[in-house]
Write a protein that binds this DNA or RNA. Structure first.
Lengths: 253, 253
DNA sequence: CGCGGTTTTGAGAATCCTCAAAACCAGTGG
DNA sequence: CCACTGGTTTTGAGGATTCTCAAAACCGCG
């Protein structure tokens, strides 16, 4: 919950034609027409520091973003400061679509790591809808995907025990990270603190810590270097009673 | 959690030109072009009984629906039967969009009351996107609206106490009902059981009952005729620390 | 009247919370 | 190189919330 500082808007370093994400097998092919439009749609790149607030609840942002690299999370606050993390975002995900469509942001977004963002202009969304129905469809598709993830999170918070919830969350995040091409030969390091997990799962920090310990005792995860790694994905999904996300190929705007 | 039976597909009774919903002030104006397309998009009407399952998790529906009248809820189940209600749907809301876009339904939908649904064909969505960018935008807008509601629900379940949660939920549903034009001179009767509330808020039935009693003791709501009515909207929002939903006009497909 | 679904009540138990303090750890400045 | 600092993780302990089990009351409907 720290600094709001340290942004830097660069002119483009990765032209869309040389996008480091698009070649990944998880993303669907684009027609050259579409690629061309997206190239024009992209206004530049924004680098933000870890801990920086990318978007603030209550504001009206003129931009939306696609994550080129790095992690973030969306959250809402209650008046007295209680925080609920709604979801995490990683490379290939859109940020700020809700605000762009509906006007005012009703959640905030904070960077979990240094990030690189592609910047788009909200005002050009209409043109996209007018001339690129395929991309318009993709955007709706991505909104639906987010909705699905929220459905899952709701199920989890509402009906799973603390242990099941935690297992689910770690499995979920690491699945998505793999889907975003974030795993090298080492398993993915999820760059979050136990406070983040607590605020995602609706648990207290203390109880979260004790729950994580149980998962570590069962050798399902390990916690090191200030982050979390999955040891047994199957163990986690089994414990959580989660079938995993059937991630097909998805669009990348 | 009862019967799957009793549907009836009627040919159209309400041509879109005489839609009983569209005149309501909450819905935005449509151009005659758009109205014409929607007219053709609509394949008929479906009447479902209270308790009927409209859409089932795991299925691939060829249709999506707009609610003409009646109430429904979306939910997911855990393997052992624990149920989480994700959101409620009322007149003007789309049902089954997620499934239409992404293929398989990942949640079920059940009618809370007798319902009348406008039936659309999934396959025609592409045509809509190709030729009616305004409508396409509207659909994305509605998906975003659903996302917002889920964000709120998540905040509620994750970070509010049982009393706050219950106050929030009742205020939220009755706000939306008012927004859907469901209030006559009498305040809206929300046609749900305490089990529904429990399954929405992630609480047990017993504790939900005791919590509702507290709200009744405070004269914020009353429970009668097998449903819930709001007595003091301000009291509820104040208790929940909720600012209410700034509902602007919205599209109606 | 009897039935199924819903609401209500009581009571003991489990989960999860708060408070408090210590341990740990990486980075900073002396 | 070491002490200090702030953030994070860990531990202990008592307490509040919420849960489960069980049974009764209630209520509309056939």
């Amino acid at each position: 919950m720290s600094g709001q500082s340290a942004y830097s808007l660069a002119t483009r370093q990765y032209p869309c034609g040389k996008c480091p994400l698009r070649p990944l097998p998880v993303f669907r092919e684009f027609e050259s027409q579409e690629l061309l439009f997206v190239s024009g749609f992209k206004k530049g790149e924004l680098a933000v520091d870890k801990g920086a607030t990318v978007l603030v609840e209550g504001s009206h942002s003129a931009h939306l973003y696609t994550i080129l690299s790095g992690w973030a999370f969306r959250y809402k606050l209650l008046r007295d400061g209680r925080r609920q993390i709604l979801n995490y975002s990683m490379p290939g995900d859109l940020i700020g679509l809700q605000g762009s469509l509906m006007g005012e942001m009703q959640h905030s977004v904070e960077a979990l790591s240094p990030m690189l963002l592609c910047v788009f202009e909200r005002d050009q969304l209409h043109e996209l809808y007018r001339n690129y129905p395929g991309l318009a469809y993709d955007i709706t598709w991505m909104a639906s995907r987010e909705e699905r993830m929220l459905d899952e999170n709701l199920l989890s918070i509402g009906r799973r025990s603390a242990l099941e919830r935690t297992a689910y969350l770690v499995a979920f995040i690491s699945s998505r990270a793999r889907g975003a091409g974030l795993n090298g030969k080492r398993p993915v390091q999820i760059p979050i603190t136990q406070q983040h997990i607590a605020d995602t799962l609706g648990l207290s920090l203390v109880h979260t810590n004790k729950t994580i310990r149980k998962l570590m005792d069962r050798k399902l995860i390990i916690w090191r270097d200030g982050g979390c790694e999955v040891i047994s994905h199957e163990g986690l999904t089994e414990l959580a009673g989660w079938q995993g996300l059937g991630e097909e190929r998805r669009p990348l705007i």
